[in-house]
Design a protein around this nucleic acid. Structure first.
Lengths: 158, 158
DNA sequence: CCCTGACCTCAACTTAGATTGAGGTTATCG
DNA sequence: CGATAACCTCAATCTAAGTTGAGGTCAGGG
């Protein structure tokens, strides 16, 4: 089985569960690469499967394709990536993931308080005016959360 | 100040931090409502601010506008919503939020293991083949995660 | 040899959540 | 009264992440 080193787009699709059209799309975005046969058909090397696994995992973390592409471009260009190469890449997302979990937990905490007071006041509630929505959505992402203020007595409905 | 009960779209925008165009958009989607003046300008009641706070918080949780609209439609139609009304609504998202946190934590756990083994194999890694991506994105959301299999010795690069 | 299924390209369409612009009206300040 | 800022509608555009379809080619089996 390690004898036929290349696979077709259809095989790649059925093995990865990703539609052929999506694979074309990924290739057009530079996330995967292929060689062409004499008849202009794509042939993928086996480690493309691993690339796709990485892409799917990354998408689950919430990373946009654009950023995944940039991460993948850190892989060695002609040598087949080693286990360490992949581990290094995966570690990158772990920070992202930690951040996102922390954000959601802050949000959950805030929501609990705000349910208690029923407030949801734009001025006072940490939940409004987030400033950390854009995490992992672009280069200059801002990660701060405004310091919480107390829910004031008048922050319920008038 | 509680004397002028209505605000313009510009005031709503600057107080909420949401662009006027977005407010128009929200109104077109039925998330907020307005009265019109003789000159066809929008006038919003004050509790629209709270609606917008709710919308923003919900978006942070990852709820699509469509679902936010449905939730908001549970608010009383002519009476100003009470603190309890809002609390009831907010509580709905808490379950969503818990789910999402749990998912991300599972993902993080899996990622840690996969970093250790460097695998990311489509066949063996729980991280590929998720089946729980679509949580909170549509009515029949599937929440299962495939039972984990061990990372096998050959799941590193060949 | 020819049929069929897998493959090719390219353009158009999809959904979500808006933003931008054109062209025109209203409200307010001095 | 006039300038200007804020408002109005409606259509077009944008990004992300693809899917769908038209029209045409390639490869392998019977």
């Amino acid at each position: 089985m390690p004898n036929n080193p290349e696979i077709t787009v259809g095989q790649l699709s059925s093995r990865s569960g990703v539609a052929v059209s999506a694979l074309h799309f990924y290739e057009s975005k530079g996330l995967i690469r292929s060689r062409r046969t004499a008849g202009n058909q794509r042939r993928f090397s086996r480690d493309t499967l691993r690339r796709i696994a990485f892409i799917r995992v990354s998408q689950r973390v919430g990373i946009p394709l654009r950023a995944i592409q940039e991460a993948l471009s850190a892989l060695p260009d002609e040598r087949t990536p080693t286990r360490e190469d992949w581990a290094r890449l995966s570690a990158m997302w772990q920070h992202e993931l930690d951040d996102r979990i922390r954000q959601l937990e802050r949000l959950r905490h805030g929501l609990t308080e705000c349910i208690a007071c029923g407030c949801l006041s734009l001025d006072r509630c940490a939940l409004a005016n987030p400033d950390d929505v854009a995490a992992a959505s672009g280069p200059g992402s801002r990660l701060m959360v405004a310091p919480r203020r107390e829910c004031a007595p008048d922050c319920g409905p008038e």
